[in-house]
């Protein structure tokens, strides 16, 4: 699979380091992951279809996809806002805020899960106000979306922020010198340059949300066909020792998220090409 075609330097350790890398990659990642496909191919299409096309599985796919999509979109809007504020403005406590943005990366998902569940449930600090308005913020698709927003936010901020920082300031000066006002400059000059990073940020956030488990299960309520996400469904099947069913569901989800990643990669390349940054 890997072949040495050219070696630019005679630095030592190439074969050793590549050997270790491939060995460890094979052992930890490739062999275990291939089990998923071996197992699936043993099932046969009829059996796979039976699992996947069941109303419960379809409902779980739909729910996971929709909540991830909405959370991704919310994160694009607010992630962009936060990235902009962090990159462009200075205000007291900015350093703390900047560090806090990474909290969802650092906070274990189980901790996030139980905390969000307690905050947004009927008696929670936030939930009690929302419930008064008739908004069911826990044990509902909305609750799932809230957890997914939490988990995906830093992906957008951390992807977009450096791009805003590296924007050529002369572009804005040039636009202004040509008579554009600030809004026109933003819409016509700044924003188009940020689109590729926004797409990347969205994809990362969306992909993470599709597979998310720990932060969601506490707030979701886990009602089959209503608030049961795909990872939970896989978990349930496993607990019933239905390995075949779990595998079938997992393979479809894995392929879907890979396709999605490939598609957005392609879209991103396209938009990068358009603004000549590739």
């Amino acid at each position: 699979m890997l072949k040495i075609s050219k070696q630019k330097t005679t630095l030592p350790g190439f074969h050793l380091s590549l050997g270790v890398t491939i060995f460890y990659l094979g052992l930890i990642v490739l062999i275990p992951l291939s089990m998923l496909f071996i197992k699936t191919s043993a099932l046969g299409p009829g059996e796979i279809w039976k699992v996947i096309a069941s109303p419960r599985t379809l409902a779980a796919y739909r729910l996971t996809f929709m909540t991830s999509l909405i959370a991704g979109l919310v994160n694009v809007v607010f992630g962009f806002l936060i990235a902009w504020v962090l990159a462009r403005y200075s205000f007291p406590g900015k350093k703390v805020v900047d560090a806090l943005v990474d909290l969802p990366f650092a906070l274990p998902t189980a901790v996030a899960g139980i905390t969000l569940a307690s905050l947004y449930s009927q008696n929670g600090w936030v939930g009690k106000y929302l419930y008064q308005w008739g908004i069911q913020s826990a044990y509902s698709p909305l609750g799932i979306t809230i957890a997914l927003i939490f988990i995906g936010l830093p992906f957008v901020v951390r992807t977009v922020e450096p791009v805003i920082q590296e924007l050529d300031a002369e572009l804005e000066d040039a636009a202004a010198s040509l008579g554009a006002n600030r809004t026109q400059t933003f819409i016509k000059v700044i924003f188009p340059n940020l689109i590729p990073s926004l797409i990347t940020g969205f994809t990362l956030s969306f992909a993470r949300a599709l597979g998310e488990y720990g932060s969601v299960i506490f707030i979701s309520g886990n009602m089959p066909k209503k608030t049961e996400i795909v990872p939970l469904l896989i978990m349930t099947k496993l607990e019933q020792y239905d390995y075949a069913g779990a595998t079938a569901i997992a393979v479809v989800m894995l392929l879907a998220s890979f396709t999605l990643l490939a598609l957005t990669n392609f879209l991103q390349k396209l938009s990068l090409n358009r603004i000549g940054m590739n």
């Binding site: 990642v29 998923l36 488990y213 595998t247 894995l254």
Partner: peptide, 20 residues
């Protein structure tokens, strides 16, 4: 391939070891 584990759901990450 090295980045692969980042785009695999945690639940699937566990599942593959059960299958193995």
């Amino acid at each position: 391939l090295i980045d692969l584990p980042l785009s695999v759901s945690p639940v699937i990450s566990g599942l593959i070891y059960i299958l193995l």
